[in-house]
């Protein structure tokens, strides 16, 4: 069992090794030892840990369902197995060796087939090139979103430690269309990358569906600015100073001003001041 868990974890983190969840190992030991009450406590604590991968969640729920089942809590077991089955590939929601478990799994699979248990589905087109310095609107289609469940977009600049998040809100026009917006100031500079993943979680923050996760985020590259691109693509060849029209406009204006001044000075009548002294005498 432990081997399966570890194999699942390895498969989920091909690009990046996910941290181990100590509660998972501990719960596995408790289940193997028949200590189901402690296992339930350990598993519930493990489910509150952040950044769980899909595989870890599947295994946590599976063990939780198993523990509830042996404690006689069929409702709890069923709920846990349902989540585990919804999250896991079909091949992994298989019947277990124990008849009690196998019977319960069989009923769950039948209910899913008859759509009594509705599975959250997330349809999401990975982002292409992102415009820099522009709010980024991410659109996703989410079906069968349970009451209390929320969808979130987690994002960070490539190289950053922590993710920021934005809630998906339901579109006013389409019931199953949701959008989340990354503020412009969170969008990396042109040429950088944005790492992100989408996650649908229930009220207890248990992941129900998602695309990517904290350790295997999707990546979108931020495009160059339009002005930069235009400048790079359509930059005019440098011209000599005498080929710039404005130079000649300036020269023309200057010559006109000098000519006007000269003409004014040439035609201007300069005045003369005459001081006249005279004496009046008696003859």
């Amino acid at each position: 069992m432990l081997t399966l868990v570890l194999l699942g974890a390895q498969g989920a983190s091909a690009a990046q090794v996910s941290p181990r969840v100590p509660e998972l190992d501990r719960a596995q030991q408790q289940v193997d030892a028949g200590d189901f009450e402690d296992a339930v406590v350990t598993l519930n604590r493990g489910l509150t840990q952040p950044d769980l991968t899909d595989d870890q969640l599947v295994e946590l729920y599976r063990l939780l369902g198993l523990s509830h089942l042996y404690l006689g809590h069929e409702d709890g077991a069923r709920e846990a197995f349902e989540v585990s089955c919804r999250r896991a590939p079909t091949t992994r929601c298989r019947a277990r060796r124990r008849p009690k478990v196998r019977a319960l799994y069989g009923r769950i699979k039948e209910d899913i087939k008859k759509r009594r248990v509705r599975q959250v589905t997330l349809t999401f087109e990975p982002l292409g090139a992102v415009k820099p310095a522009t709010p980024l609107v991410v659109e996703a289609r989410i079906e069968e979103l349970a009451l209390g469940a929320k969808a979130k977009l987690f994002f960070r600049r490539s190289g950053a430690q922590a993710y920021s998040s934005a809630d998906f809100t339901r579109s006013k026009t389409a019931q199953q269309t949701f959008t989340a917006t990354v503020p412009a100031y969170e969008v990396p500079d042109a040429g950088r990358e944005l790492e992100y993943y989408v996650e649908v979680a229930d009220a207890a923050q248990r992941r129900l569906a998602g695309k990517g996760d904290a350790y295997n985020p999707l990546v979108a590259r931020v495009a160059a600015r339009e002005a930069d691109a235009a400048g790079a693509g359509a930059r005019e060849p440098e011209r000599a100073w005498y080929q710039i029209p404005w130079v000649w406009v300036g020269v023309g204006v200057g010559v006109a001003a000098i000519a006007t001044t000269a003409a004014v000075l040439a035609t201007q009548k300069q005045g003369a001041t005459v001081q006249v002294d005279v004496m009046v005498k008696l003859q």
Partner: peptide, 18 residues
Amino acid sequence: AVSAGSNRVSANPIFLKS
């Protein structure tokens, strides 16, 4: 001649017949 700028003219006196 009267040129541009300042000029000074000392006019001939006026004689009154007393």
